[in-house]
Design a protein around this nucleic acid. Structure first.
Lengths: 214, 214
DNA sequence: TAAGTACTATACTCATGAGTATATAGATGT
DNA sequence: ACATCTATATACTCATGAGTATAGTACTTA
C-alpha cells in the first residue's frame, strides 16, 4: 500500500527544506532577470514578487532585504567563475593552454544570467558589507587568472609582459560580453567564447606561423 | 581709459552667454563625477547643487531634468570617441596602424570623466529618447572601428576573421578600462593605453617575429 | 528710472518603493 | 484537540528625491 502511495500532500521535513531552497532559488532567478534588464534600482520587489504570483512580504520570508538578493546574485555568478578558474588552474597543459580554457569558460558564464549580473552590477549598488565581499571575490578570481598568465610566461607559452595589465585587458574583453551578448542573436555562447578567446590569444596582427587552435 | 578698465562687473551679452555656458559645463562636470562614483540613481541633484554652492532649482535653470544631464554626459564622452575615431580613420597608414592609433585614443578617453560615464551608464538608465540616441552614437563608433578592421583585413595588416566579433572584443577590453582605472594608481592613462593596445594587437601567445611597436 | 530679463533661493508637492505590523490558513507535533 | 510553526496576504509607514510654485535680487536696456 505504501509502495503505491504516489504523492502525499504532506512532505517530510527534508523535502520541505528542499522546497524552501527551490523557492529561494526561483526568487533569485526572477530577480536577476529583472536586474539585468532594468537595473537594480529600477527593479521593485513588487515586480519580482508579482512575476512569481506572490507578494512582497513573501520575499522577505526568504531574504533579509533587497541588498541581500543582489549580493546573492553576484555571488552565484562569481562563484561559478571561480570554480571554473580553479579547476582549470589545477589542470594540466602549458600556461597558455590553461589560460585559453579558463577564458573560454569565463566567456560562456558571462552569457548566463548570474554571470551577466556580475558585470552589470557596479560596486556602489551593493551594501557596504556586500561590496567588500564582492571585491574580495573578484580579486580572488583576478589572482587566479594572473597566476595562470605568469605560469605561461614562465614556461614560454605566453609572451613576456605586465601580468597585471594583461589580466585586466583579457578579463575586460570577457566581462564586456555580458553587455552585448544577445540570446536571440546569431551566435551561440560557445561560438562567441571561441571567437573572443581566439582574438585575445592571437591578437589581430597576422601571424606568420598561424596555427589553428592553440 | 577704456584700455585700462580691467574688469567691469558688467558683462557684454556675448560674455554673459559664455558665462552661462561655463556654468552649464561646471554642472555637467560636477554631475559626471557623482554619477561615476555613486551611480546615476544614487546621485541626488541636491548633492550636485550643493557641491557647487547652489541649490537644486538653479540646476533646472540649465537643464530640463535629470535625464538630460546624464544624456549630455554620455554624449560628450561618445562625441570625444567618435571624433578621435573619425580623425584616425581618415589618416594614412595601414589598417593595423590606424586601428592601433584609434584604440590608443579610445583607451585614453576611457580614463577621463565623460568617457568613464559612457561605460558605467547602462541603457536602461537613460530616458527612452536618450536611449535611442545613445545606441545610435555607439553604433556609429562601432561601425567606424569595424570599417578600420576591415580595411586592415583587406590590406593584409590584420588577420582574417569575423570583423564584428573582433570589434566587440577589442572595444570591450577598452571599455572595461573605465571600470578599473585608478587615477591614484601607478600607471598613467597613456601607459595603460599602450599596454592594453599592445596586448590586443599582439595577443598573448609569443610571436616568432616579435616586433617592438607595430 | 521704469520695465524687463536672468538667475537664484525657500519651501513646497508628489510618486515611488523599501520595509513592516498584523492577520490567517494549513500543516505538524503532543 | 491544542499549541505551534510555516508560508502567505492585506494594508499600512516612512524616507527619499525629482520636480515646481513663488518670490526676490541684480543686472540690462530703453
Amino acid at each position: 500500500m505504501a509502495s503505491t502511495a504516489r504523492q502525499s500532500p504532506w512532505r517530510k521535513p527534508v523535502e520541505r527544506e528542499r522546497e524552501r531552497g527551490e523557492k529561494r532559488e526561483a526568487l533569485l532567478h526572477a530577480a536577476v532577470q529583472f536586474f539585468n534588464e532594468r537595473g537594480f534600482h529600477a527593479t521593485s520587489l513588487d515586480d519580482v514578487a508579482t512575476s512569481l504570483n506572490v507578494t512582497k512580504p513573501t520575499i522577505y520570508h526568504y531574504f533579509a532585504n533587497k541588498d541581500e538578493i543582489l549580493f546573492e546574485c553576484v555571488r552565484l555568478g562569481l562563484e561559478g567563475i571561480r570554480q571554473a578558474a580553479e579547476t582549470v588552474e589545477r589542470s594540466g597543459g602549458s600556461g597558455l593552454e590553461r589560460l585559453t580554457a579558463l577564458m573560454r569558460d569565463y566567456a560562456v558564464i558571462m552569457t548566463k544570467d548570474f554571470g551577466m549580473c556580475v558585470t552589470r552590477t557596479a560596486d556602489h549598488e551593493l551594501s557596504t558589507e556586500g561590496r567588500a565581499k564582492f571585491r574580495a571575490l573578484k580579486l580572488e578570481i583576478d589572482q587566479i587568472v594572473r597566476r595562470v598568465v605568469e605560469v605561461g610566461m614562465a614556461d614560454g607559452s605566453i609572451g613576456q609582459g605586465n601580468a597585471k595589465m594583461i589580466t585586466f585587458t583579457l578579463t575586460g574583453a570577457l566581462n564586456w560580453i555580458a553587455r552585448w551578448y544577445d540570446p536571440d542573436g546569431p551566435s551561440s555562447p560557445e561560438e562567441i567564447a571561441d571567437a573572443c578567446v581566439a582574438t585575445l590569444v592571437n591578437g589581430i596582427a597576422p601571424r606568420a606561423n598561424r596555427k589553428r587552435k592553440a
